[in-house]
Amino acid sequence: MPLQPAITDVAQLKDSPAVSALQSAGLVEGAKFDRDELTIYVDRAAIRQACEILRDRPETRFNFLSDITCVDVFPSEPRFEVIYHLLSHSQKDRVRLIARVPGGDPSIESLMGLWPGVNFFEREVFDLFGVRFLGHPNLRRIQMPEEWEGHPLRKDYPVEGYR
């Protein structure tokens, strides 16, 4: 199969219920349809609102949060991309939300109020990337030892040798 170029024009993606639902609330910063997967960029301040809309609207109903992860795009800014994978059991569809977080103030709102199951995922992102989730009741390291210094999955953290 030849690789199709990604669709990055939000106007062309209007047909997707997820894009139109977020568009009506004015939350879409950008969107991408690449390799059959839909990605929507949202502002970090609006991540909770965006997830709530996608979860509760009858036309989207992304009722399940599969995963939260993060990518460090060091040295460019905003440095972190916090990535949410939502799944809809009824529509059999997935959507990816990306919120960009600056390196100077790596923090984003926690989704504990929407899905209590984000607990371990958010703790893992905090542990390995140092992104703080505001409103998380128990934001401690989960994989690394409590007294560990640094966040291993950041790109400026060496793969081998001493820090």
Binding site: L3, A6, D34, R35, E37, T39, S66, D67, H85, L87, R94, R96
Partner: peptide
């Protein structure tokens, strides 16, 4: 590998 991102569950 061409640039991009995917999730496969």
């Amino acid at each position: 590998v061409p640039a991009g991102e995917v999730y496969q569950g």
